[in-house]
Amino acid sequence: MNVFRLTGDLSHLAAIIILLLKIWKSRSCAGISGKSQILFAIVFTTRYLDLLTSFISIYNTSMKVIYIGCAYATVYLIYMKFRATYDGNHDSFRVEFLVVPVGGLAVLVNHDFSFLEILWTFSIYLESVAILPQLFMISKTGEAETITTHYLFCLGLYRALYLLNWIWRFYFESFFDMIAIVAGVVQTVLYCDFFYLYITKVLKGKKLSLPA
């Protein structure tokens, strides 16, 4: 555990909680892509199946349980409790175009051709692109609520901090996981355009809106 890994995890946790609180307090999931949230629930479920097979630490186990629990709670709020506020017409990204290639890639490129390892690999690849339906929705509507941009910033920052963590671990622990690193770079790059808008607009007190 190093400072980048810990702040990355906390940034990830902050993102998840910001989103849950936003939906709960406003009693609305307007502007939130339910499809991205379903993808994140699949990501956590397929990655954390090792909860059943191996124990790493109390920290590790409790964070995994919290992430999974919050992911399903978010999906429940969007598709059940506040379903009436869900903007399905704008959430029109075709997720099969992500899930199918990512599934194929996980079967072809993995560390070990075993059930749990392929699911772990699938979750790493899927996470790297799971935000696309959300970004697509924002580009379609041309705007995002400020609280939604805070969520996206924390979520993007988390993987960027993990990149620093992997550099640290490479130098100080000789740890190197090519699959996680490549997927992590892809994931972080997808947020770059958003980071630019966040810093130049939201942090200066303006609403995030895209030119028509």
Binding site: D50, S54, N60, H111, S174, F175, D177
Partner: peptide, 10 residues
């Protein structure tokens, strides 16, 4: 040495 199949990251 780390066993890469024991994924200790989240």
């Amino acid at each position: 040495e780390y066993n890469i199949y024991e994924h200790d990251e989240l």
